[in-house]
Design a protein around this nucleic acid. Structure first.
Length: 349
DNA sequence: GAAGCGTGGAA
DNA sequence: TTTCCAAGCTT
């Protein structure tokens, strides 16, 4: 297996993509890059990485930023708990660790939002710790190389992958080796249409030898997303000559926590929403229907029916914790893709 | 251990 | 159009 290790390292040194975080060993910058690219493709996150480290170039500046501002930079990237955990951990590093980034696996993994993968990545890249990473790329590359048919998204399958990595892992160059496995999985040993014609491991790859490359990795299938039906209530008013909208910050919910949105009411079917919308009523002002939106999440399908409720005066609205924001103020509020679509249809953004 | 957490691109 | 997937972590 020594030959696999050396071929992979050699391949990486020649073929690695030129990416911003590959020019540094600053644990702060590596940390940011690793968290941004959790469950996220390079194409999708690259500009976010550049913006994030430009705005928050070190852990102190991140720790001193406001949550809203940091979430605004993260807006559109998804999995917002990553951003909130970064912020929390930055304050922890400044306040509890005297600003010194932890340099052992056990200390690194204590950071909120840092799990086995990210701790191993930071440790190996920044501190030469001999800790193998296991991400989606590695699971695919290793399961094919060793023809492992166990489901990789189970603890048993993870253990098998982990044992297999030990056979080829380089403790001498752990950072490069870890990145090499991931880079190979991302660019050659791809999920669909892997480039076996262009692969230097045809002789060593058990899946290739057996003709089962496209059957691996094996995974336990995810559940089908559940449908949700929401009416978003867009309250709009003129106040002192400026247009204002009523929004609130999601503090207690799990999804989109920390982001702002319009108050909503949930229904259990599209039919019940249509019945509600067809019922003519005007409590405080004129009501008009905005463009319905379908928003696909990994685990939910949201059917959103925004309605615009325009006020003639300053009648108070009793919505918990919601506040009026001017169009200018809304530009700085972090919002989900879905709410951003509603704001676009209103011409606010 | 299983479910929840975003978004966008590819097939 | 639908499905899968992408440098995972938390509860």
């Amino acid at each position: 297996m020594k030959v696999v290790r050396e071929k992979l390292l050699e391949w990486y040194k020649i073929n690695k993509r030129d990416l911003p975080w590959r020019h540094t060993k600053d644990p702060y910058l590596i940390w940011i890059s690793e968290v941004i690219f959790q469950q996220t493709r390079i194409d999708q996150g690259l500009e976010y990485y550049k913006r994030f480290v430009q705005r928050f170039p070190n852990v102190k500046i991140l720790a001193e930023s406001s949550e809203d501002e940091m979430l605004k930079v993260w807006q559109g990237l998804g999995y917002y708990s990553r951003a909130r955990n970064l912020h929390y951990s930055a304050k922890y590093i400044i306040n509890e660790l005297n600003g010194k980034f932890p340099n052992t696996y056990d200390e690194i993994i204590k950071l909120k939002g840092v799990g086995p993968y990210t701790a191993a990545a930071i440790g190996s890249i920044c501190f030469d710790l001999p800790t193998p990473v296991i991400d989606g790329n590695v699971q695919r590359f290793i399961s094919r190389l060793f023809a492992i048919s166990e489901a990789v998204n189970t603890s048993k399958g993870q253990k098998t992958i982990s044992n297999a990595i030990e056979k080829i892992f380089s403790k001498k160059e752990p950072g490069d080796f870890n990145q090499a496995m991931m880079e190979y999985g991302a660019t050659v040993c791809k999920p669909v249409n892997p480039e076996c014609d262009n692969c230097c491991f045809n002789e060593e790859c058990f899946a290739f030898q057996r003709g089962i490359v496209n059957e691996l990795p094996n995974k336990v299938k995810a559940n089908a997303p559940k449908s949700r039906f929401l009416i978003y209530k867009v309250y709009k008013r003129m106040c002192d000559g400026e247009t204002q909208y009523l929004l609130y910050k999601r503090d207690n919910e799990s999804i989109w926590k920390g982001l702002y949105e319009f108050p909503f009411e949930e229904f259990n079917s599209k039919k019940s929403i249509e019945a509600e919308l067809n019922e003519p009523k005007s409590l405080y002002g004129s009501v008009s229907h905005l463009e319905p939106l379908k928003h696909q999440l990994s685990h939910q399908t949201i059917f959103a029916f925004p309605i615009l409720i325009e006020f003639d005066d300053k009648l108070p609205i009793n919505v918990t914790l919601a506040e009026w924001y001017s169009v200018d103020q809304i530009q700085d509020l972090p919002v989900s893709k879905l709410i951003n679509s509603v704001l676009k249809s209103l011409g606010v953004v």
